[in-house]
Amino acid sequence: MDYENFSKQLKAISDPNRLKIVDLLSCGTLCACDLLEHFEFTQPTLSHHMKILQEAGIVSAKRVGKWQHYTLETSFITDFNKNVSTLFENGPECACHCKK
Results as ranks from 00 to 15, higher is better:
T86E: 14
N81R: 14
R63T: 10
N81K: 15
Q54I: 11
T74I: 09
Y70W: 12
K82A: 15
S85Y: 15
S75W: 02
N83V: 09
K66A: 03
T78S: 12
T86I: 11
V59W: 00
A61V: 06
H69E: 13
D79T: 14
H69G: 00
I77S: 08
G65K: 07
K82S: 14
I77A: 10
S75H: 03
G65L: 10
E89A: 10
F76Q: 02
Y70A: 04
V84K: 02
T74Q: 09
F76D: 01
F76L: 07
I77L: 12
N81Y: 12
Y70G: 02
T86Q: 14
Q68R: 09
A56T: 04
D79S: 14
T74L: 10
S60A: 08
Q68H: 10
N83H: 15
S75C: 04
Q54G: 04
R63C: 03
G57L: 03
G91R: 13
K82W: 06
K82F: 10
Q68C: 05
S85T: 15
L72R: 05
N90I: 12
T74W: 00
G57I: 05
T74S: 13
T86S: 12
F80Y: 13
K66Y: 10
H69P: 01
N81I: 15
W67I: 02
A61C: 04
S85R: 13
L87I: 10
L87Q: 09
V59M: 04
A61L: 10
L72H: 02
G91S: 13
F80A: 04
N81S: 15
E73P: 00
L72V: 08
G57A: 03
S75Q: 12
W67K: 06
V84T: 13
D79Y: 02
F76S: 02
I77R: 07
N83G: 10
T74E: 07
Q54T: 11
S75F: 00
N90V: 09
G57K: 02
V64E: 11
V84W: 09
R63Q: 12
L87C: 07
